[in-house]
């Protein structure tokens, strides 16, 4: 017996339950396929009387159309739902930590050298470099520190065996005369680099340091220019207001010479660098005529700047290369 109503009801119930395209496809086969319920109903028609065949035939046709419409509607719905799921990311646990590509880290002294270089370059200073293994002339004599001058003793020097008068430079000031020999003022340079002191290493002593030398030479450079430029640099470097004070000091290669202390907003005075107006003897060593030019020079310890900036409490950490340290920069 053909119960069209029952088929219709069953199809409707089944449709309500399906949740995927695959199930919709199966339902299609079950009702509208070659051997589906609708096809079988049509097959029953041929054994019926003409009148009955017409009535039932119309009903089966309607059943077919209805199921087709319902299925189409359901498929549309499924499509929308799938899209929603995809865009909502409902199937991904977005709270899981991301997959980080492993990045390496630059050494804090590289970072500090770059910051210093960037600030001075923005003020028109050029980066100059010089050798770490230096002659006695560039490191001492040319800087107005002749042989047997007691100030040479202030800097414990690594001398090289078998290389007469060769040493490991004790100051980046050694770059000054190298550069001036090849350039005529006006000039302004900074020279970052490694320097050496012949000391046994312990908690407070190191045998190598980083320094940046600054030199500006022209016809009318004055100490007030230095004060302005160095304060500008320190404020840019520490990204805060900085007070500076100049105290009398002595370096053979500058006259007058200063010691520079700086104080960040709310902080304490910190001794930061030595500086001064270039001694005419240094110009003479660079073959400039005496009294034609004036200039200022300064030398800042980069290790110290890095320690202040990053709150590093021990200088030895810079050369231990512990990845747990390096990864923090």
């Amino acid at each position: 017996m053909l119960d069209i109503e029952k088929i219709k009801q069953e199809a409707k119930d089944a449709l309500a339950k399906i949740a995927s395209n695959e199930e919709a496809q199966e339902l299609f086969r079950k009702y509208l396929g070659k051997n589906g319920e609708v096809a079988r109903a049509f097959a029953l028609l041929k054994d019926m009387a003409v009148e009955e065949r017409q009535t039932v035939g119309r009903e089966v046709n309607e059943l077919k159309k209805e199921i087709e419409a319902l299925l189409a509607e359901k498929k549309e719905l499924l499509k929308k739902e799938l899209k929603r799921l995809e865009t909502m990311g409902d199937e991904i646990d977005i709270t899981r930590p991301g997959i980080k590509p492993v990045m390496g880290h630059l050494h804090p002294l590289t970072l500090v050298q770059r910051q210093v270089a960037e600030i001075f370059q923005s003020m028109g200073f050029e980066i100059a470099q010089g050798p770490e293994m230096e002659t006695e002339w560039y490191n001492f004599d040319a800087l107005n520190m002749p042989k047997d001058h007691p100030v040479r003793e202030m800097q414990d020097t690594f001398w090289l065996k078998g290389e007469s008068k060769m040493l490991m430079r004790t100051q980046t000031s050694a770059v000054q005369v190298h550069y001036m020999e090849k350039h005529t003022p006006p000039l302004r340079i900074i020279a970052p680099g490694r320097i050496f002191r012949n000391e046994a290493i312990d908690a407070t002593h190191e045998c190598q340091f980083y320094q940046v030398e600054g030199l500006m030479v022209d016809k009318n450079i004055c100490a007030a220019n230095f004060k302005a430029i160095i304060e500008e640099f320190l404020e840019k470097f520490f990204q805060t207001d900085v007070d500076i004070r100049l105290r009398p000091s002595f370096f053979p290669f500058t006259e007058p010479s200063f010691e520079i202390d700086a104080k960040r907003k709310g902080g304490k005075w910190l001794e930061l660098m030595g500086a001064g107006m270039v001694n005419q003897n240094v110009f003479e060593a660079a073959s400039y005529p005496r009294d034609k030019y004036r200039g200022f020079a300064f030398g800042v310890g980069l290790d110290r700047l890095a320690m202040i900036k990053y709150g590093i409490n021990e200088i030895r950490l810079f050369y231990q290369n512990d990845l747990r340290f390096l990864k923090q920069f």
């Binding site: 028109g124 050029e126 302004r188 500006m216 100490a223 007058p256």
Partner: peptide, 27 residues
């Protein structure tokens, strides 16, 4: 230097130098 230090470096003004505008040489 003697006159400067006794006079007092704290009185030294901050004056930016007057220079010819040049682009630093690239290193």
């Amino acid at each position: 230097e003697e006159i400067g230090r006794v006079w007092g470096y704290e009185k030294l003004p901050k004056t930016f130098p007057e220079v010819i505008l040049t682009v630093p040489q690239i290193n």
